[in-house]
Design a protein around this nucleic acid. Structure first.
Ligand SMILES: [Mn+2]
Ligand SMILES: [Mn+2]
Ligand SMILES: [Mn+2]
Ligand SMILES: [Mn+2]
Lengths: 244, 244
DNA sequence: ATAATCTATTAAGCTCATCTAACAACGTTA
DNA sequence: TAACGTTGTTAGATGAGCTTAATAGATTAT
């Protein structure tokens, strides 16, 4: 029984993932449960099940319990592996809340290439094994570095940058220090909330090159980011820390 | 002129992003160019432009050059910022090929939450500033660590794990060493190509807990991953390195 | 100026994923 | 067994996004 449609859509992957989890949790998957888990109405589930059955991915007799075929299980597991990989990256590495980590991951899992899976896995292998024995050493630094998270006591990881910071008050150069014609590389967006969002949304993320085109009246600067011009208030510009 | 539809779909975001880039590159955006850039037919673009114009995001008179309104530019820039953030993460950090990094990023940009953007930016700030002065020190380790990339000469970063590795032949414990009932934590999937993919697709990614349920005849093991059982050949199991 | 060539718009039609609302099957309780 | 409540199926409709093919407008060459 060949599948008629070789491409599996995001929605179909999610149905398979959901069935897989339901069968794992409570032995059986029913239309009602699938609908609840996916946040859709039962009326949407029945036709979807018909389709998945036609593709040979589930075993489905009307009104009976739903079960994955080996091929469906394959897809479900692959999808879930991507889901977990991304969720862990967001939650465990980036410290995104569980809720957002989960929903971002479940949306993006359908678009992560095989190469992406491979390399993201390598990343976990690295932070698990390389950094000096303790498996959380790298994450510790990431989550507690006072350079990035102001208010953190100290990273106690003999980091010369931090030491330098506590010696000299602040040798930081910001975007507001640049003269028209000069350019620099963003090192950090030293702001929170709305200001931070606005700066990031304008493309001012670390490692981006930014050039000051000219100063505008009324305390604004015209800048060039990603080959495109925008304006910023000088106030905002002081929050963009540049690499030395 | 209020937007009738407050939610902007992935496709619409991509149209805005495309227009933004075209205007930046060659001053004007025409239907034909937009179609080519997005890989759709011109017949799809015209109605889309009509819609975006109705939403107040572009300036569009039939048969004339297309331009973003300030609101459209806002959306375009935000989308592009996410695109670049993700692309850089995949390419510069994970070493995914430009092609895949770009396409993965452009698909996922529409689903990354604000919190995700914020934290991913923090990640870049961290690797830019914390690790010992050189901005590429962390990436160097990641990309050259011989623990993860066999064949690499040596990471020369006084890493005790590597030193231990070169002293003692191999103290590694793999999934195939576990007895039924025992469990461990995945540290690395020490395989390439098909085998690696198959193991990852079964959920065996670093930091996952795995339990051996029982040994099967004919050199297979039944294992429990993510609350679900699967089988592996003993051969495959030897490639799953466990944390000590 | 006319024809040839590009380019853009439109209409019709497709697929996918969803909804609502009517209906059918089933199991339970009275 | 009859009624009821729960669960599942179906049909009809919607909307997004795309294609193709016909048509229309604009530009360029002859
Ligand atoms: Mn999903
Ligand atoms: Mn998922
Ligand atoms: Mn995109
Ligand atoms: Mn994009």
């Amino acid at each position: 029984m060949k599948s008629k449609n070789l491409q599996i859509s995001p929605a179909m992957e999610d149905y398979l993932e959901t069935i897989y989890l339901l069968v794992g949790e409570r032995k059986v998957a029913r239309v009602k449960d699938i609908a609840a888990a996916r946040g859709v109405k039962p009326g949407s589930v029945s036709p979807a099940m018909k389709k998945l059955a036609a593709m040979g991915l589930i075993r489905y007799e009307q009104r009976e319990f739903i079960d994955l075929t080996p091929e469906g299980e394959e897809v479900a597991r692959r999808t879930l592996a991507r889901h977990e990989l991304l969720r862990r990256f967001f939650h465990d590495v980036l410290n995104v809340s569980q809720k957002n980590a989960r929903s971002d991951a479940c949306a993006m899992e359908h678009y992560l290439s095989d190469e992406g899976v491979d390399r993201l896995t390598k990343f976990f292998e690295f932070i698990q094994r390389c950094p000096r024995g303790s498996k959380t050493e790298f994450l510790d630094r990431l989550h507690h570095c006072p350079l990035v998270n102001p208010g953190q006591p100290d990273c106690d990881h003999d980091c010369p940058e931090v030491a330098a910071m506590s010696r000299t008050p602040a040798v930081r150069r910001s975007l507001s220090d640049l003269q028209p014609g000069e350019s620099g590389t963003v090192a950090q967006v030293d702001a929170a909330g709305q200001v931070r969002r606005r700066l990031i949304d304008r493309g001012l993320i670390p490692q981006t090159t930014v050039e000051v085109v000219r100063n505008l009246p009324r305390g604004s600067v015209r800048i060039l980011v990603n080959g495109q011009e925008t304006s910023l208030t000088t106030q905002e510009a002081t929050h963009v820390v540049l690499a030395p």
